[in-house]
Design a protein around this nucleic acid. Structure first.
Lengths: 240, 240
DNA sequence: CGGCGGGTCTCTGTATACAAACAACGGACG
DNA sequence: CGTCCGTTGTTTGTATACAGAGACCCGCCG
């Protein structure tokens, strides 16, 4: 049987594998968001409606919607009378972000330990056991490793079954991905992180909520320490 | 010295004390948000752009912006092809909201205990000591009591000095105010809450972060219990 | 030489017109 | 009598035109 020829414009993917939205607002939002997170639009960049609309290739109306969403995300901030600015990323902000992240991820780990399906996490455990080998495979392996971490986070989110918490975590992760570039590819840290993740997974499998929360706390403490150390070396990070 | 006379149109207040925004988007957002939180637009209500634009008295463009913000707040949800709907409030959602709230408020209390100015909280302590008397003064006293709680929350936010955390807490409180109506005015509960708040304040004054966090945990546990008990009696709350 | 004020010019905020997509309805055909 | 398809109406998505507010700049005055 031949599949019917239907144009699913909403899920059509471009050559780069990035889902291409049908409507202009979504396209503009994704493009600007990606450019901010990738650093193509560095902090402090002023965004003017007409200018950005022309660049992205949409009219001002959908672009305004996109900027409004970015503003709600906290990626840009309104500047009275003179458009919007890409928000700054300072060391102080990183510390603050981690304070929120700790609260959220500890709770998520707790809930996952209480409600999670152990089978799911046993599967993840097996893959984290061999994760250190990925680090020997260069840039591609590192990407796979980060994908694995994403899967763990998503498994914890699913197990927690709390839409409010997931929403808050998504917001935090958006900001995190902006600073993750700084510490990316530190293999010694990634190897240590794998061990920390394993402990979290074991705690969830065992249904030990307190251990899961405390292991998450330890993991994030180490993560923050590593990020701060990386930013100390990297002069690109400005501490306003 | 006389303060300069400046027209702050953005903060100008109307006769009812409600800040009146200069621009139509803000006005539409405030009105719709207020109506949703007050229950004037009950869960399940469909919002059509033209209809709401006419009712609020703005054109479709600012109204779309308002609805986009409400959607980001989680107060309305997009319905493919047929406008937006006011989101439901179920008992399950209340539980989930409290799970997030606990994580956030515990962290906020912790930070306040570490960084807060004891003098500020000593002032609040004095006022909470006499708070039970307010409950004897009818509806007006109860409103003053809630205002006092708001002040405490704001003092904790300020002491925590973490914009990300405050932002997340604001989002939670938005949803909370939708359900607070259900349990409003339960005097026995309010009296008990005053004692719990006092313990939190004392912990912050003493700089005891763990006690502040645990006292907050206890307080929220009692609060949730009280809310759930109230919804059991109140058939208006649907559990989908 | 510095501060103040008027003018201009750019940019945002709002309204409206147009296009496209989705849903619902009705009719015709199997 | 049921199902499929075409048509119509309603609703959102986008573009653009217009108006108002704010900033910048230049010239004037102290």
């Amino acid at each position: 049987m031949r599949a019917p020829i239907v144009a699913f414009v909403y899920t059509k993917t471009d050559p780069h594998g990035v889902p291409e939205a049908a409507n202009a607002s979504e396209r503009a939002y994704r493009q600007l968001r990606g450019e901010i997170l990738d650093g193509d639009l560095p902090p402090g960049t002023g965004l003017l409606e007409v200018e950005q609309a022309a660049r992205v290739g949409v009219s001002r109306t959908p672009l305004r919607a996109a900027i409004a969403r970015l503003s709600a995300d906290g990626l840009v901030a309104g500047r009275t009378g003179r458009g919007f600015v890409v928000t700054e990323v300072s060391i102080e902000r990183i510390r603050e972000l981690y304070e929120l992240r700790q609260a959220l991820e500890e709770q998520a780990a707790r809930l996952a330990a209480q409600r999670g399906d152990p089978e799911v996490f046993r599967g993840l455990r097996d893959r984290f056991l061999v994760a250190p080998e990925l680090l020997l495979q260069g840039e591609h392996g590192i990407r796979l490793y980060y994908d694995l971490i994403d899967e763990l986070e998503q498994a914890i989110d699913t197990a927690g079954a709390n839409p409010y918490l997931v929403r808050a975590l998504d917001a935090v992760r958006t900001h995190l991905s902006r600073i993750r570039r700084l510490a990316r590819g530190n293999k010694a840290r990634l190897r240590a992180a794998a061990a920390e993740h394993l402990l979290i997974i074991d705690a969830i499998i065992a249904g030990d909520a307190n251990l899961a929360a405390h292991a998450t706390h330890v993991h994030l403490h180490q993560s923050l320490t590593s990020v701060l150390a990386a930013t100390d070396e990297d002069p690109a990070t400005r501490a306003d």
